[in-house]
């Protein structure tokens, strides 16, 4: 009988937020259409390394398993991507898994994603509908900008663009590509555009859009194909105009 085909994983692990990273190797049987999340589930069932040592199961996050929630983003073979749609057959073996170190690591592949929520708050990523005014029928979306907004709305705050960006990380205060695209999405909304100046001013502050170094990694890393560099350039245009307004309006 032929030997059973196997898959080898080299996983970068870390026991605590301040712990020292180390790697462990796992080998598991291959099966058709195996993806990284399914493989991690196999390791969880039987957490034994390749050299037979029983270890604590690998910690990671996942949720929807269909590339819409963004929770399972990790660095697979050096590139940030969703583990749920990373098919083992399409990856070079041994497969290296590592946490996205742009974010604080909590344990193993689990990261603290709070900063992405904070970023959305920083750019005022919402539409003000509640207030002392009467709620009426909202204005219509322009169908052309609606198509752009639909594209940007696919963003699942997975963090791939932030991990790929050389200017985002503990060494810098750069807000990163995805919240900037989100700001543009809210700016082209017929109700959201009332707060356009606030969002642009937030992006002109320290660590805003001006920290972008045009490496272009974000648009290549985005699993949703959002044209991030295009929207970054658009916001760059918008902040120039906002800057002129700031100078000449006051």
């Amino acid at each position: 009988m032929a030997l059973q085909k196997t898959v080898t994983f080299i996983i970068e692990r870390q026991d605590s937020p301040t712990g020292k990273p180390y790697t462990q190797e796992f080998e598991l049987p291959w099966r058709p259409a195996l993806n990284v999340v399914a493989a991690l589930m196999e390791i969880q069932k039987n957490p034994v390394t390749k050299d037979g040592k029983r270890v604590a199961p690998v910690v990671w996050e996942c949720n929807c398993l269909e590339k819409v929630c963004g929770a399972c983003m990790m660095v697979i073979n050096g590139k940030a991507q969703q583990a749920c749609c990373a098919l083992v057959d399409k990856l070079k073996q041994p497969i290296h898994l590592a946490p996205a170190r742009t974010f604080p690591v909590i344990r193993d592949l689990l990261i603290d994603r709070t900063v992405m929520f904070e970023n959305l708050k920083r750019i005022q990523g919402w539409i003000n509908v509640d207030g002392t005014w009467e709620v009426r029928i909202p204005p219509r979306q322009n169908p052309n900008t609606a198509a752009t907004a639909y594209e940007i709305s696919h963003c699942m705050t997975c963090g791939c663009c932030l991990e790929a960006c050389p200017n985002v990380g503990p060494q810098s205060d750069f807000i990163g590509p995805s919240p900037i695209a989100q700001a543009y999405m809210y700016n082209i909304n017929p109700l959201g555009e009332y707060d356009k100046a606030n969002r642009l001013n937030a992006l002109m502050a320290k660590g805003g859009i001006t920290s972008c170094g045009n490496s272009g990694n974000c648009v290549k890393a985005c699993p949703k194909g959002i044209k991030l560099t295009t929207y970054l350039a658009q916001i760059n245009r918008d902040v120039n105009i906002q800057a002129l307004k700031n100078i000449f309006d006051h």
Binding site: P166, N167, K220
Partner: peptide, 12 residues
């Protein structure tokens, strides 16, 4: 100093 160059991982 704000950048952590990563052309080996992202060789675009």
């Amino acid at each position: 100093l704000q950048a952590r160059n990563n052309p080996i991982r992202y060789g675009y």
